[in-house]
Simulated scan of single mutants.
Amino acid sequence: MLKNSVFKPSVDTQKWLKAAGIRAVKTMAQAAIAGIGAAAAMGQVDWKYVLSASALAGVLSMLMSITGIPEVESEE
């Protein structure tokens, strides 16, 4: 059920942190690009909103990665 979860003893925590961090940064960049693009179409970029939405996307990405990510294989 929780394949490659960070809570499994067979998963390398350091590898998981690196892979989950990379995923989170990519997700944050995608959220920022979407926020900037949408705001630019309306005429003004609200940077607080862009940063806030990007940070939230990064946190959600890390939380979603807890259930497991394919980049990190368990050593079973």
Rank of each mutant, 00 (worst) to 15 (best):
Q14V: 14
S65Y: 02
A24L: 04
W47F: 03
E71G: 02
K48E: 14
A29G: 07
M1G: 13
R23N: 14
M28D: 02
V45T: 01
L56G: 12
K8W: 00
G37H: 01
K15E: 13
W47L: 08
L2T: 10
P70E: 11
P70G: 10
S74Q: 10
A40N: 07
K8A: 09
E75R: 13
F7E: 00
A34P: 07
F7D: 10
A19M: 04
A32R: 10
L60E: 14
I22V: 11
G35W: 00
A34S: 13
Y49H: 09
G58L: 08
F7H: 04
M1R: 07
L51K: 12
S10Q: 10
A57F: 06
A53P: 08
K3E: 15
K26L: 12
L51W: 09
L51T: 08
W16P: 01
A24M: 14
V11T: 04
K18N: 15
G37W: 02
A55W: 12
E73N: 14
N4R: 06
A29K: 14
M1L: 11
G37T: 03
W47I: 05
P70M: 05
A38M: 06
G43A: 02
A19N: 09
L51R: 03
D46C: 02
R23A: 12
A41H: 02
I33V: 08
A57L: 06
I66A: 09
L2N: 15
A39W: 01
S61P: 06
A32W: 03
W47N: 00
Y49Q: 11
I69G: 06
P9W: 04
G21L: 06
S10C: 12
S10V: 09
K15D: 13
V59D: 04
A19I: 08
M62L: 15
D46Y: 01
A55S: 13
N4Y: 04
M64A: 12
A40K: 11
